[in-house]
Structure formats: C-alpha cells, structure tokens
Design a protein around this nucleic acid. Structure first.
Length: 151
DNA sequence: GCCAACGTTGGC
DNA sequence: GCCAACGTTGGC
C-alpha cells in the first residue's frame, strides 16, 4: 500500500466533479516521471491526496483511491483533444492513465498550511521548483495530513 | 500576466 | 552527448 499526491486543475476536474462520478480516468498526464509512477508503482487500493492546482486556492481538497491498473490514455490518439500526441500510436502507446475514485471532500488544506507544517517539509510537492503532477507521499506524511485534516 | 524552474527537442 | 532554444507548469 502506497500513497500519492495527484494534482488536478479544479477548472477541469475538481473534487466535487470527481465525487459525482463513480471514478475518474486520470487522462492527460504528459510527463514521463509521472507516467512511470502510474505504470510501475501504483497499485489498486493506494491512497491519493486530491490536490487542486493552478487555481485561486491551491491545496489538498480531498481523499481518493486508485481503483485500476494502468491502461492507455485515449486522448493521445484524439486529434481534437488538447492532449493529442502525434508521436503516439496504438501499437505502442506513449501515455497511460489509471482510474481514481474520490472518497471524500476535505477542508481545503492550503499550500501555505502545508508549508507551515514542519513534519511535511519533505513532501515532494513542496520542494522548490517541483512541478510533477503525481508524486509519492510517505506514510508519515500521509498520517500527518490526516491528523491535520481532523484538527 | 509575470516569471522561475523544469522538461523536451533538435542541431551539431 | 552537449546545450541552446523553446514550451510548460504553477504559484503569486
């Protein structure tokens, strides 16, 4: 059992949008490191911190769970999609995704609050210049965040 | 909209 | 394999 932080732009898929669906297909990841995390390390049942990025109030907005293994992201083949990749082909897909099920909306644990918590200073998402949309979260970080959410 | 930081591309 | 140029991310 591992833990992850996954960024979503609430204008595209917010925690409310995700809760309204049975599960959310995490399409659109176009970074090899993030892809490799999904492909090589994620397992069904892993815990997910649902993070709102590129918005007025960035931060953790909910809890979710990985509910599928990795499979090809169809938007790479869709010429009308902004995620279309001309170098991808069906025989050898470049980009994959997983399905994520939102479990609950939490209070907004803002970026500033995360930064203020010393126990969370190791979080990859808080490192200077970090842009990865999917990052592993340690068990200690996960536990600390659950505690913060209940306080 | 700005801009720092990072990732990717492609010529050499 | 190097590295300049370009594109993207994402907080502010």
């Amino acid at each position: 059992m591992a833990y992850w932080l996954m960024k979503s732009e609430p204008d595209e898929v917010s925690i409310d949008d995700a809760l309204a669906q049975q599960s959310v297909a995490w399409f659109g990841v176009r970074n090899y490191q993030a892809r490799n995390f999904m492909r090589d390390a994620m397992r069904v049942g892993d815990g997910v911190l649902f993070y709102h990025s590129s918005c007025a109030e960035p931060g953790i907005a909910g809890l979710a769970e990985v509910v599928s293994g990795a499979y090809p992201d169809p938007t790479q083949f869709d010429m009308t999609s902004k995620y279309f990749d001309p170098k991808a082909n069906r025989e050898n897909p470049r980009w994959i995704m997983v399905d994520v099920k939102a479990k609950k909306k939490t209070r907004l644990l803002s970026l500033s609050e995360l930064r203020a918590c010393k126990a969370l200073s190791t979080m990859l998402v808080l490192q200077k210049g970090s842009r990865l949309s999917i990052t592993p979260v340690s068990e200690m970080e996960w536990t600390t965040i659950l505690t913060l959410l209940n306080s």
